[in-house]
Amino acid sequence: MIIELKNIEKINKSAFQTDLINWFKYEQRDLPWRKDQDPYKIWVSEIMLQQTRVDTVIPYFNRFIEWFPTIEDLAEAEEDKVLKAWEGLGYYSRVRNLQSAVKEVKEKYSGIVPNNPEDIAGLKGVGPYTAGAILSIAYGIPEPAVDGNVMRVFSRVLSIWEDIAKSSSRKIFEKAVRELISHDDPSSFNQALMELGALICTPTSPSCLLCPVREHCQGFEEGVQNELPIKTKKNKTRNVQLAAAVLLDGNGKVLIHKRPATGLLANLWEFPNVEIHHPLQNDREQIIDLFEHTLNIKVKLEKIIGQLEHVFSHLVWNINVYTGTFHSDFQESDEWKFVSLEEMKEFAFPVSYQKMLRLYLERQKE
C-alpha cells in the first residue's frame, strides 16, 4: 500500500520540530509520569490514559505506583488488589492485559521493558500507539505514537481529509509522524504532539492564535481547521434495563456477587441484578421471579430507592435500585459473599455499583 502525503513537502521539517519542541519545553503540564523516563511508569500512564482524561488519571496513577512501584510488584500482585487499584477507571481489560504483559516482561526479559518494536508489540494489550509512546518517550527511539490527538493535529497541519475513525487511516498518520519526527529528541516531539492536541488543537474551537506551529499549518492557511478532522460517528448505543438490589441478611450483611471471569467487567463485584427484557417485568413480583429463576435467589424486595444510568462506549445501563432481604438458606461461595459495609471497601466494584452503594447510604441517612 503506497501512502502519499501531498502537503508534507510544504513543511520546513527542522523549523516545525524546533517550534513544536521549544513550545513543549516551556508549556508542558507537570504530570507525575514525566518526572523521569522510567518505561514502566510511562507504560502504566499510557494504558490509564486510554479513554480517560488526564485530570482523572493523576490520582489513580500515583496510587497505582505507590501500591506497585516496580514491574515485579505488579507481576506478583493478587488480581483482586490490582482491580481494586483500578476501581473506577473502567475498561478493566486494560489492567488485566497490563498485568499479563508485565508478568511476561518479568519472566522473558528479566523485568526490563523491551526497547525494540518487535518485542514490545508482542506484549499483551500493547498496540502501536502504546509501543510508540514507550519507545520514543522512555528510550528515545524515533517511533510514531499516533492517538486521536496526534491524528487531529496532523489532519489540520497537513490538511488530511481521511476519516480518522477508520483503522486504515492510522497508517497515513504514522507515515506523517515518521517523516516529521525529530531524531534528536523523539521523546519531546511525540509528547509535544499529544500536548498540542490536548491543550491547543482541540476537537472544537482550536486555539490557532496560540499555536506554536500555526505558520506550518495547511488547515489554518486554507481556513478549514474547524472542518478537520473528518470523523464518522459510531453506531448507536444499546439500552439495557436492569433491576438491582441491596439485599441484607439477618445480621445486616450485604449480598454481593462476583461477575464471570470473561466478558464485560470481568471478575469485578456487583450487587445482585437481573435484566428486564419486557416492560411488564418492571412489576415487582415479576422482578422477584426473575431473581429466583435467573440467580436462584429467593428475595423480598422492599422499595425502589432510585434509578441510575451508566453509559459504556457501546451500551447504556438503566438501573432501578431496590432494597430488600434474601432467604436465610442461601449459601456463600466463591461467587457470592455476605459482607459488611466496612468489608465492602476491600472489593473492587464497577462505577455503576459504586453509585448504587452511595445511593443506598444516602437513603439510609434520610
Rank of each mutant, 00 (worst) to 15 (best):
E79I: 15
I137C: 10
P59C: 10
L74A: 05
P69I: 05
N97C: 08
Y60L: 03
V82R: 02
N116V: 09
N115H: 14
Q99I: 09
K106A: 10
R63S: 07
E72R: 13
A131D: 00
I137W: 13
Y91L: 08
I137N: 06
I137Y: 11
K108A: 02
Y109A: 07
E78C: 11
K108H: 06
G122F: 05
S100D: 10
D55R: 14
A133V: 05
I58A: 03
E104T: 15
F61S: 01
L83I: 03
K124I: 08
G132L: 05
P128A: 09
Y129Q: 07
T52P: 03
S110I: 06
A101S: 14
V54G: 01
V126I: 13
N97P: 01
G122H: 05
G140D: 04
R94P: 02
I65F: 00
T52E: 05
V95E: 02
G140T: 11
Y109D: 00
L83G: 00
P114M: 07
W67C: 04
L98V: 08
Y109M: 08
V113H: 02
A133K: 11
A131G: 07
E87C: 09
F61C: 02
S136D: 04
D119T: 09
T52M: 12
Y92D: 01
E87Y: 12
G90Q: 00
Y60F: 13
A138V: 00
L123G: 03
E118R: 14
E72G: 10
I112Q: 06
T52W: 12
P128Y: 14
N62K: 15
V105L: 03
T130A: 09
P114W: 10
E87L: 11
G111R: 08
N97A: 09
E78Q: 08
W67M: 08
T52Q: 06
V54L: 05
E78D: 12
I137Q: 10
G125K: 10
V57Q: 00
G88M: 04
P114K: 04
E76N: 13
T70W: 09
T70I: 11
L123P: 00
E107L: 09
L89T: 02
Q51W: 08
P114C: 10
E104Q: 14
D119F: 04
I134A: 06
D73S: 12
K124F: 06
E104G: 03
V57A: 09
R96M: 05
L98H: 01
D80Q: 13
N115F: 11
V102F: 08
V102W: 04
F64D: 00
D73C: 14
E79H: 15
P117N: 12
P114Q: 06
A133S: 13
Y129V: 04
A101I: 06
E107Y: 11
T52Y: 12
D73F: 15
V105N: 01
Y139C: 03
N62E: 15
D55F: 15
G88Y: 08
E118C: 04
T130I: 14
I58Y: 13
G125D: 03
K84M: 03
K81E: 06
E66K: 15
V82N: 01
D73I: 09
A138W: 00
E76V: 07
V54K: 04
E143F: 11
Q99A: 05
K124W: 07
T56I: 13
E79Y: 15
T56V: 13
W86K: 04
G125C: 07
Y129D: 00
S110N: 10
G111N: 09
P142H: 09
G111C: 07
R53E: 04
W67T: 05
P114D: 07
L89P: 01
G122Q: 11
P128I: 11
